[in-house]
Amino acid sequence: MSRIDREDVERVARLARLRLSDEEAAEMTADLDRILGYVDLLEEVSTEGVEPTAHVIPLATPLRDDVPAEELPPEVAVANAPASEGTAFAVPKVLDDEAEG
């Protein structure tokens, strides 16, 4: 049984704003299926009582003091943008239905 189908790939591609051709989608479905199959190997290991590992470093996150430091000059901040207006980034007009999600 396949672990991932064409529909899953298309949905994830849409969420990631990727446009896949038919060929690419088919290729991607097969690739992802193989990758998930490889990951399935891990299912064979018993993880009873083991906490999910999000990070392998046995450290707590370091905290920083709340002190402002050097900021980018605004002209530098927008320097690499394809378009800017004053010190604002300019982007194609945003439509409401593109908001979040």
Binding site: D66, V67, P68, A69, E71, L72, P74, A77, G86, T87
Partner: peptide
Amino acid sequence: TRTKLFSTAAVSYGDEPNHHTTPVCL
């Protein structure tokens, strides 16, 4: 706070666009 959650840029209100950024903010 005086600075942002993950960067040392200042928290501000009403300033001109992009006057308080660091590479992390961008």
